[in-house]
Write a protein that binds this DNA or RNA. Sequence first.
DNA 1: GGGCCCGCAGGG
DNA 2: CCCTGCGGGCCC
Length: 372
Amino acid sequence: MAGLSFDEQREANIARNKALLATIGLSEEATALLPPRAVKPPKKKKQLQSKKRKAPTPEPEKDGDENTSDAPPAKVSRVESSGLRRSGRTAGKVVDYAGDGDKLPQGTRTPKLLTEAARKGATRSEGRIPDQRTQDPKQYGPIPGIKVGTWWESRLDCSKDAVHAPVVAGITCGPDGAYSVALSGGYEDDVDLGEGFTYTGSGGRDLKGTKQNPKNLRTAPQSSDQDWDNPFNSALQRSVESKKPVRVIRGFKLPSIFAPAEGYRYDGLYTVEKAWQERGLNAKGFLVCKFLFKRVAGQPPLPRCGEEEDENENEDEGEDEDGETTLEGETVAEQEKEPESDEETKVDGSNDSPPSATKNRGSGRQRRATKQ
DNA sequence: GGGCCCGCAGGG
DNA sequence: CCCTGCGGGCCC
């Protein structure tokens, strides 16, 4: 297996990944049916580029300022507020979360509920992201108060909500498997069918460059084999055995119709069905660790492309597409305590009313295709 | 639009 | 304390 061209190798890998997805009942055809608008017509790019940022505080850092959390509950809508952009490094620099001293006691930490907006089920995270983490990301299953479909502008915001702690890393390790993973592109032979996907592990990247050309990067192209000694990969391997659910977030860079147009979105819980190794799409064909994920049944349907939560508030239980009588009731486990609603009839997410979004942002993010 | 630092959170 | 990791902004 050395004579394959890049494209041939790519096709072979994708075919293999799809075949594995088929073993858990997922096919591309089924995926194509789901939404009315699977294929996205070319859209006209709208400005949307500027990352409006919630106004931090006029004063970069002021000592006094105790408990910043009492911020305005309302806030609402992600008003662009025109200018005002996250001035990265040069500006304030010291962002100092945790405000003054008061580091979390680590062991025992008062839960401290999220803001009203969060509990109410805001699909957007604006205005309610805590300055410092209020919940423990090192727990399996859903994060209390964070609904499926919650969206963040950045990985750091997602981290603050404890859904996926690392800011760069894609996998969070735990004793009985990974707590969470992030799908953000980066590997061309990963296949995302929404209800399931294949995922590539960590390691084998040349972050420090070469001796002659030293670098200090956070991500880089594959330069060696990935192995199971890698703590991230082994964690996902344990997930296969433990069957513990893994929180999944999809990022805007993911080349998939299930990727959010912007930012990062919590897509609920998945289980890792299988772990294996295969040749990656590297010129040298380095080995990569791969994993087969399957979405836990009974969760809100995944939005496609630009359609986040739309207005479809309660679409009743019209058992549409894939839903097909799954519902298992308690199968979803503690997805949330809602004893009254016997059926899944929309557990959470989906409802809510988008403040102003209306998201037309189709953001065409074309399918890969590069790398000819 | 690509290259390049550099901050953040976790683990060893 | 050092290193790693599917970010992200800035500069070129």
